[in-house]
């Protein structure tokens, strides 16, 4: 397999796996030095991943994201970059194991699908780049939001159970986690809205219709509605805290579901030169 096909998929997956191991070790022992090593490993992994995607795009003449595999790979990378930004800013590493478990999962899925070999004319459309970028940023925002929600729930349980363990030492406060979740999902929601609008403009130019009830479109709309509901619920007093975290995770499961469903079950216009085309 060529380097451009290996690095942004199995190569990066392996490196993220190594980083996950290092972060897990740090999580257990808590030594600053161990944490530093884990961070360095993750930075290296992200840079290799980025370089791999660049090599893939250059060697092939058309850049990612073309295809579900590449999109997932890009979502993973931007999630990691957002995480690294949060880590550098807050000097908190506690979220890493949570984020990395999710990212490694996404990367395995991405690697199984692999890169696309041809490009559909649709993807050469002027609006495709912005549309895909917006969707990818939205997915990354939601992914980080989901990671934060899981961390919130885990910490909430420990605090309520009066048995604060390691989690409590390593994670930011509940209030902090909640505020970060809000920011991440709000960002995701804004980009998803933008992505949907750009997508329908793109659809109009390519197929002559703004909206075609394609399965992917339906799932994305459902995601949009779920996150919108979560954001509205937040304003109500009895829907704060752990409840909004649960709603967030339900909404995120629709993100995962749409990715899984599209690539497994349906032959839709959104499969981008994958197996079906």
């Amino acid at each position: 397999m060529e380097i451009g096909q290996l690095l942004p998929f199995w190569g990066a997956t392996a490196l993220y796996g190594v980083s996950l191991g290092l972060y897990a070790h740090w999580f257990r022992v808590g030594a600053i030095e161990a944490g530093r090593r884990a961070s360095i490993a993750l930075w290296v992994a992200a840079l290799v991943h980025l370089a791999g995607l660049a090599v893939l795009g250059l060697s092939r003449g058309f850049g990612p994201p073309t295809g579900v595999g590449e999109s997932l790979s890009l979502v993973s990378l931007s999630t990691i970059l957002i995480y690294l930004y949060l880590e550098a800013r807050g000097n908190e590493r506690g979220l890493a194991p949570f984020a990395l478990v999710l990212v490694v999962g996404l990367m395995i899925k991405a690697s199984l699908i692999g890169p696309a070999h041809q490009v559909e004319p649709l993807l050469r459309e002027y609006f495709f780049g912005p549309h895909a970028s917006a969707i990818i940023l939205a997915m990354s925002g939601f992914t980080i939001g989901a990671v934060l929600s899981v961390a919130y729930l885990a910490q909430y349980r420990q605090l309520r159970g009066k048995n604060p363990g390691l989690l409590l030492r390593r994670l930011p406060s509940l209030q902090g986690l909640d505020a970060m979740t809000r920011r991440a999902t709000r960002l995701g929601f804004i980009f998803l809205t933008l992505g949907l609008v750009l997508g329908s403009v793109l659809a109009h130019r390519a197929w002559g219709e703004y909206w075609s009830w394609d399965p992917k479109q339906c799932m994305t709309l459902l995601t949009w509605l779920l996150y919108g509901t979560a954001m509205l619920l937040r304003r109500r007093r009895d829907w704060q805290g752990e409840r909004v975290a649960v709603v967030n995770l339900v909404a995120f499961s629709s993100v995962l579901l749409s990715v899984a469903m599209i690539s497994w079950l349906f032959d839709s216009a959104h499969q981008f030169g994958g197996i079906g085309s």
Binding site: V29, G30, A31, Q155, L159, P164, L168, R169, L171, P172, S173, L174, Q175, G176, A179
Partner: peptide
């Protein structure tokens, strides 16, 4: 090492819990 971690009194345990709940 984590020799400086953790609470040394009931009052400091209460404070460190409070800091894990509120930002």
């Amino acid at each position: 090492t984590q020799i400086s971690e953790g609470s040394v009194s009931v009052a400091s345990a209460a404070v460190s819990l409070a800091r894990k709940i509120f930002d």
